[in-house]
Design a binder for these strands. Structure first.
Lengths: 191, 191, 191, 191
DNA sequence: GATGAATGAGCTTTCATTCAT
DNA sequence: CATGAATGAAAGCTCATTCAT
């Protein structure tokens, strides 16, 4: 078993996915983690204080997925499509958690560090944009990392809304993806 | 009495703004509304069931602000700037609530009606886009209402993140606004 | 049933007498009071916050006992013996509670008002001293109320220690009473 | 190692002084002692079982202070004043702990040994009384050790109450001391 | 309709105690 | 002897919900 803090975090993710954050209790989390009630408090002061830890893991997941799906040799349009694909898929799977992280709701109290957490995410996407600039696939006038933040926001927002209303209709989802692609691609390539 | 329902809703907004949604109790809401504990239940079955009502009011606020600031005679670029301005301002003021509505967290149970609520919002922005198409200010190949949803998502996401980290630095906020404008404007005008 | 706050206070006294303060839980108190767990918190924020209320009742008990046993027509030496009798008896019955009130332990947080609570007690004993001065039974150079405080302290301290070590030996108790009487009486009458 | 037991006891005193006995945990004590949680149990079976050890140290402190301040050559009235001074000073410093020892609250289970602990205290004061009898400074009809107990009770009670209500007003404290002196001195000298 | 005291299920939280290292 | 992470029983506490008035 990995270290206990990670184990609690993973159990929290599992519980949040199943019951929703509102209805998850610390009891649920420790049950999944196979630890005693009191042990939880050795690592976290409250349910929501697990959120930053979750965010770290979620960002790791995203980066891993990006690494697995976005090939350095792809043209930029392919890469952008893959990025959208990855974000949509993860958003679907971790709907509630993602919504919470994304909206920053749990934030008020615990999420001071989030900029650091997301930093790597922005850098990864920023790197892709920068690379595309080098290849003259997108315009050179953008700041890669700053644009990455906007791009991610755009895709996430769209994905969120897609799955929010239980739009499980594959066609509509695909339409949304292509619209987002279109929106972003034009913006990035317009000279 | 419709008045009382509105009064409860406004009190809920006030309480949510002050304490955050997590820590707001029905007791807080009725205190602000100046009514008895039990009275709440004559109008709403639960705390979260107030959310759609709040969403309605929030959308009304947005529409009103748009009406106040976006002039029909403005050119599209001015209009877009104003739209961004309005969304950023409201997001700043109603940060938490907005985040919640936006992320759809309170969702699961009461979100069914939300598409209807947002419908008017999409229509308003869609109308502006449509009008801009008529004047050949933006390309004609977009579907106004569908693009409106994406555009709103983009601006809201950016605004959310701006205020999340207490970036009160006016300059950075302004930079974000201009970046979002740039991102969207290019996308909408690229032929 | 008297009002609920009193009912809780009396139940607390009962529980404290039976289990000792350390081992009494709020559950115990509400069980005796025949009310729900949450009801307790409508009247008191914590277990120890009941103490001032208890102190009031204890002082009332003392005053009542004094009224019942100390006759206005008695000579001062008889009165003093009766006072000692009353304090020893009550101390025996409410050992733990008395110890706590007396030592002021629970005090730190909640007992700001105690001077007021004890005020009546001091006044009652002070009145007896004053009356004895009028009859030239004790020296006139003492301040009745201030001396009352010292006198009460002396008797309480002695009573406390008597019952602390489970000295249930009636003879030793009687010896202590007479020693305290002697100590105080000499002090009050020495010209 | 005897050192460690003393270290735990001193740490307990420190913790009790700072947080009050109610809110002090074994965790607090071991933190101050710089030892591990489990080590505590090698020396004491529970939190309250430290009390007799504390009492021993407190009595030692008192005896030391008495030795430092009460000169064999002083007249009895000076000695009595010094005794009162010492008890008031120590009571002020160790308010809470003193109250506890004095009231015997922590008692129930561990108080058995206390008579032995206080024995030396009574003997010390008793010795002073006895000596004063030899010099015909106080009346010969008292039992020194038994009177010592009463005298100590009187002074402690008065000191306790003085510091309970945060009467930090030096003048009132001084008045109390002189009243207690007067009360006791008359009693001991009245023929 | 309106009230608000009372409820009590069920959650959070603590912390003395243990035991493998 | 010493450790300190882990335990989990047991306490505290909250708050949505009810219902007699």
């Amino acid at each position: 078993m990995e270290d206990k803090k990670t184990s609690i975090t993973l159990s929290a993710i599992k519980a949040f996915k199943e019951k929703g954050i509102e209805h998850t209790t610390i009891s649920d989390i420790v049950k999944y983690a196979g630890i005693a009630q009191g042990t939880f408090y050795l690592y976290f002061p409250s349910k929501l204080s697990v959120m930053p830890e979750i965010a770290i893991i979620m960002v790791e997941k995203i980066l891993e997925e990006l690494k697995n799906h976005v090939n350095i040799s792809d043209t930029f349009d392919i890469k952008l499509k893959k990025i959208i694909e990855v974000i949509f898929n993860l958003t679907e799977e971790y709907k509630d958690i993602y919504a919470l992280i994304y909206s920053g709701l749990a934030s008020s109290e615990y999420l001071v560090h989030w900029e650091n957490i997301y930093e790597k995410y922005y850098e990864a996407i920023g790197g892709i944009l920068s690379n595309a600039q080098d290849k003259v696939e997108i315009r050179s006038t953008i700041n890669p990392k700053r644009y990455a933040a906007i791009l991610i926001g755009l895709i996430e927002a769209s994905a969120e809304k897609s799955f929010l209303y239980n739009e499980q209709d594959e066609k509509i989802i695909e339409l949304k993806k292509s619209e987002v692609f279109d929106f972003a691609f034009r913006s990035l390539t317009q000279s």
